[in-house]
Amino acid sequence: MLNMPFMRLKKVDISYKLENASVKAVRSFSCDIEKGDIVGIVGESGSGKSTLALGIMRLLPPNALLSAEIMSFDGKNILNLNQDELRRIRWKEISIVFQKAMNALSPVHKIFTQMYDVITAHSSDIPKGRAYKMLTELFGKINLPSKVLNMYPHELSGGMMQRVMIAMSLIHNPKMIIFDEVTTALDVITQGQLLDEIKRLVKEFGLTAIIITHDIGVVNEVCNKVAVMYAGELLEYGRVKDVIFSPLHPYTKALVKSHPDLRIGNELIKGIPGSLPDLTYPSKGCIFYPRCDVRLDLCKDVKPKISVLGDHIVKCHRIQG
């Protein structure tokens, strides 16, 4: 596969089967990610960000159905890898920090035991002493004291737990890491340190990262590209300075506007009126139509095409590329 970007997603669809309905969580999602990119994914709660991440990792729950035209990573087709091959690349080449980080560890084993399991899963000949030293060093980078290794998960604070999971994702120096809402329990100082560490890894080791977050401030601090998702669809994708500071899509505009800022006065912050559409129905026209304040008649029934303006992609009838 010549000239393939580092990661290419094309027409990824993921739906969850429920008893009497099916939730279409990701709809026809396409985007390219180059090596060394830090891509932020932002979007309303429930719009399929975590689902997409799990899909890339092929870790979807059993009631999920994934289909795609292309899903490639570093020259490999993720779609037709079998469980063994997947296991080989997970953690080692591509790793993820789950949003449910706080729930992912076993409550009855010490942190060290669980981290050691991940270490030996890929390189079995590391003695405990060395692993301990390695982990202590790793913990230092994300501001975690080494005594955490001897504690049980329930004895950690939310942010400590999150950082343990971040450390776990870094163990094998993967080529790509997906961070799913990893700063939710981190204070600004630790968050700053983590973001600096991510930047350093990108610069020194050519790491590629996807950062799923609700915090546009975080996107602004570390990412060079950002994808805006809404109800499973990609609405806008491009460089941060284009998308955040001169957004084209009405949803992105509204999202940026509802972000509270410290430096601005204390006026009432407003959300976007309306709510996410019912994801169990397929959408006919533009997915954002019901809440859009600049909608056209056309938007109701005709799905907008993706307009490409250089490296800025938008899905809106008002924008012609």
Partner: peptide, 14 residues
């Protein structure tokens, strides 16, 4: 190549 592949198909019931 246009190839659509269904990977996991399972129904969740009662």
């Amino acid at each position: 190549e246009v190839q659509t592949e269904v990977i996991v198909t399972r129904r969740k019931g009662k």
